[in-house]
Design a binder for these strands. Structure first.
Lengths: 238, 238
DNA sequence: GCTAGTTTTTTTGTATACAAGACTGAATGC
DNA sequence: GCATTCAGTCTTGTATACAAAAAAACTAGC
């Protein structure tokens, strides 16, 4: 009988909020954010029933979303065992940042070649405004601004496939970026490095832009490995 | 009553072949191949009921697979309209090959730096055997061998994330590779170009390896745009 | 003949049911 | 005390049902 109650309330509340898009649309973003921020303990199996209930949907749309996140590389799946958050180990962090570095370099190079003067100026202006009080922002805000900056450059590359690939890698690396931004040190260097990238782009020097980008991302990669250990450890203890 | 018959036969045949893995596992590879080879007309909505019936499963596992393929960029999805094969246009082909070029260069560079001598020799030996009668193979076989060659190099990069990203891009570009391999001209140049790449790798010259790889992939990109028009046109007329 | 509106048919979105596999833990034998 | 088996429970895999949206077919009016 508890079941009947649950069902009734589900239907009712669904009617209340249904006006907006489908269930899948609605829960996709939320689950993606949860996975990106490691709100699930890595390796620990997700309970579909529980998770579905928490979103007030049935397992059908939930599993569709989980399957997408598996394909995006944010979750693991093993048949008959279920879904789980992808574990973070040093090797994966390293690999992820190496790929990211390559893609960001390509992105910077192409953007430098293809963006219009107006687009470059808008990018510079946008960053100037953020940079003014970047160091006062919270780590979460810093990470968001940084991500946005890099994504804007990818957009200027005018390569849609590159943009999507980079978005995917960045989603998988989101938590790492967050950890790094918790270090005041990183928040400070970020500004200077972005400035160098913008300068090279303004000079219409693709090689220099790629080089500055590489330095910006690689730096993170090396030091990040250190930071990771502490950050990941934090994940595994509650 | 037709329904009842259908159902019964479904259950019976399912019992027959069930021994191997889950439905999802079984149909994932098949559907992926179908999408990669454009067995579906681009843009034309897939009928879930029909498709599910053809695989002898229900819509539930089918949709899980389709959702994965959407996340992998092989299919499109619009809510309330359904799934469809991603259309191929010149811009997308160009973008895809540009990304592929960047990733393959990275892959060649890293493999050159990281592979052991034994691994390089195995790669060379493997290709020598294929090259012997590469020009006599069918286009489909050529594409398979070419894909395998590039994937082996990615494996030698020892970067799992790079390998997966490249596999994904290559899956999306599979049909294009197939089209290009239908030109005898391409089948011939492929051998020579692979040889150059292997040579640079053997010399432990990462920059040269990346450069050869770039020439190999970029060449394809430029000429491919021409070839594409005919190949894509073929898709749209039956 | 054509358009606008209406009914019918398809098709999608999601809840639910149920079978089968994995897990747990108590009871049994060594 | 420890391993082992079996019952009970939990969880996943998939079929199915049904509502709601979209598409198609049909009709009436111009």
């Amino acid at each position: 009988m508890a079941k009947v109650n649950t069902k009734v309330s589900t239907q009712a509340s669904k009617a209340d909020r249904k006006p907006s898009g489908s269930s899948v649309d609605r829960i996709y973003e939320q689950l993606k954010q949860m996975a990106m921020n490691y709100r699930f303990r890595p390796g620990e199996p997700l309970n579909e029933v529980e998770l579905a209930a928490s979103f007030d949907v049935s397992r059908t749309p939930l599993r569709e979303v989980l399957n997408r996140l598996v394909a995006e590389g944010l979750l693991d799946f093993v048949p008959r065992k279920g879904f789980s958050c992808k574990p973070l180990d040093t090797k994966r962090v390293f690999d992820l940042y190496e790929v990211r570095c390559g893609l960001e370099m390509m992105s910077a190079r192409l953007a430098t070649e293809r963006a219009t003067d107006a687009e470059l100026q808008a990018l510079q202006q946008g960053w100037r405004e953020i940079a003014a009080d970047f160091c006062d922002l919270t780590p979460v805000e810093c990470a968001r601004c940084d991500e946005q900056f890099h994504e804007q450059i990818a957009q200027l590359s005018q390569n849609t496939e590159l943009l999507h690939t980079l978005q995917n890698v960045n989603a998988r690396a989101h938590y790492l970026r967050l950890i790094s931004m918790e270090q005041a040190h990183y928040r400070r260097t970020t500004c200077a490095e972005h400035h160098l990238i913008l300068q090279a782009m303004g000079d219409r020097n693709p090689d220099a832009a790629a080089q500055c980008m590489s330095a910006h991302v690689t730096l993170r990669q090396e030091e990040l490995v250190e930071v990771i250990k502490e950050g990941v450890a934090r994940l595994y203890m509650t």
